[in-house]
Design a protein around this nucleic acid. Sequence first.
DNA 1: GCTCGCACTGAAAACGTTTACTGATATTAG
DNA 2: CTAATATCAGTAAACGTTTTCAGTGCGAGC
Lengths: 355, 355
Amino acid sequence: MKRSPKPVKSETPAKIDIRDVAARAGVSIATVSRAINRVPTVDPVLAERVWAAAAELNYFPNTQARALVSGKSKLLGLIVSEITNPFFPELIQEFERVAVERGYEILIASTNYDRKRMEQCARRMLERKVDGVAVMTFGIEDFLFERFAEDQIPVVFIDAAPERPMSSVLAVDYRVGINEGVQHLAGLAHRKIGFITGPLRLRSAAARKAAFLSSLKSAGIKADPTWIVEGEHTLESGRDAMVKILALRERPTAMMCSNDMTAIGVQHALFEAKLRVPEDFSLIGFDDIHLAEYTIPPLTTVRMSCKDLALKAVSALVAHLQLKNLPADAGEMIPTRLIVRQTTGAPKAGKKAKR
Amino acid sequence: MKRSPKPVKSETPAKIDIRDVAARAGVSIATVSRAINRVPTVDPVLAERVWAAAAELNYFPNTQARALVSGKSKLLGLIVSEITNPFFPELIQEFERVAVERGYEILIASTNYDRKRMEQCARRMLERKVDGVAVMTFGIEDFLFERFAEDQIPVVFIDAAPERPMSSVLAVDYRVGINEGVQHLAGLAHRKIGFITGPLRLRSAAARKAAFLSSLKSAGIKADPTWIVEGEHTLESGRDAMVKILALRERPTAMMCSNDMTAIGVQHALFEAKLRVPEDFSLIGFDDIHLAEYTIPPLTTVRMSCKDLALKAVSALVAHLQLKNLPADAGEMIPTRLIVRQTTGAPKAGKKAKR
DNA sequence: GCTCGCACTGAAAACGTTTACTGATATTAG
DNA sequence: CTAATATCAGTAAACGTTTTCAGTGCGAGC
């Protein structure tokens, strides 16, 4: 039953494992394991020998074997909507940075707004045995949910709490940022303000729209439903929505968008229609992706800090992992705020009078 | 020594494993394994029972255990420079799509142009035991290289062959696209053309610069070294490089850039300097990211198809995995070509005369 | 009717770690 | 000087699969 020290001197180069290191350092594999994991009880002299041996052999522990026995994969899953929307790479980058800092690696999956893909993503997380998952897209299927709960895998929803909330939820306070946007526009004397939403099955998109509507109301401005159109958070959908709006008999003088990509699409439509921004038309985005500073002209937008989001998400996950059975909700709100750049100005309509 | 059918009825919800499924289906775990993996020799009746049991229990196989014994992780690594540069998400998305199609999942890592991070990335790939790696950034450290080779892990270099080439290399033919760009500019009567490179330790960036230089020469245009500055493939570096160039006593009338993000940075600098594009200045990017169509005005750029890149990379990897000991190099070239949009036009200098 | 082969299932080894436990040695207290 | 204890190394079990191998039962051929 005893395993031979090494299966056999096969001709294939033979991957290096813990037993090779043990042999070279002249200790048992248990000691190698402890030394590698920096368990303090191991004799410094032996530890040194082990490290040296490991270095000489270019040894890397097999995380699969490690995960299998320890029950911890040291992997954090991150499910996002769409990786080609620049907001997400920014989030991912920060998420990874923080995760690595805390000793975790990340596994990325994107749903592309597709229900089927969402299932696959969740399944993948389960199969790869992530220690925790952050979700920033629409809700997870119910049955998968149960499975996450059964396996005691913490899930944090960034800005997209599902029907039946379980682990923690990172709520974003759209109200203040979007309200600032509306106020800013109102202060510039805009009365005709439109909005391009994101895909409304996204909870976050619906919430942004709601925030817009309520801000409008509190500014005493009447919402015109023909100026509110559903987009998909993409360049195309922003442009298309805007050409539709520009074709209307009565046009708005300003638009707000559910995200920056949409706004850039709108900017493009405006450019094609030979409308100048902000002289002829005002525009406000949402997210404040890095690119927003570089559009022409630079985009006025509502900032939602992805650094905050990432940091809080990882922290919540790690907290759950370390202290089992935390309260389900941190309850904190991620703030948003308006960043004024150059796509907003007073409408010409003021000069031109009503008609 | 015999493992009890189930460790003990513990109070924690107990993750579901293959033994649970076996018990419920009334078969052995071997049969479950075979049924799940659709081995044809298993009795259809039993297979059906197993599938039903698995579904009822929401069973997912543990990929770690599976990988450990089978020696195949079904993971493909992808190491890129920087995830926040939109070119890479586009590549990643396509890479993932194709990989999933072929039965693989992907593990993403980004180096952020940092040598240390590069090492970490490679280490991570080794630790997680990917079956193959695609690399699109600068060269891998030598010692890691050896390790990949030792473990017989195929590596494909996208557009960034290292000093000591090993597995396959996907070469990009910069020549034709960049040459088309220069010709286009020359045809518009530009004689003063600058270039903003990427970080030159990136082989691909160096190659693009070389292609530019040789295209210039074959167009009979003298290169002015003060108009060639090293950037970092980022918005900032593009803008900064351009303001530097605009401060020169003698300015070029057109610029080409090593990637689109740089070009967008340049566009911004031009905007701030109140120079109109293309009336006052012409501009050509590289990559043809999706966004390029949406800049204002839309960016003329050299297209390098990330779909091609992704497809070829995955194919090469999978081929290596299936047919051991393939020739080291597919030898194919990824083509590039100019996409003319609206950032290029005739220079005013022609009208204004020499001075 | 017996043997042979075929088709299929189940038992158990193996994958590369971690970790509980055992045991050896050194150290200290009495 | 002996006994108790602390310190740390090693042995072996365990993690959840896949896969080899042995075995069972059945049909067919003689």
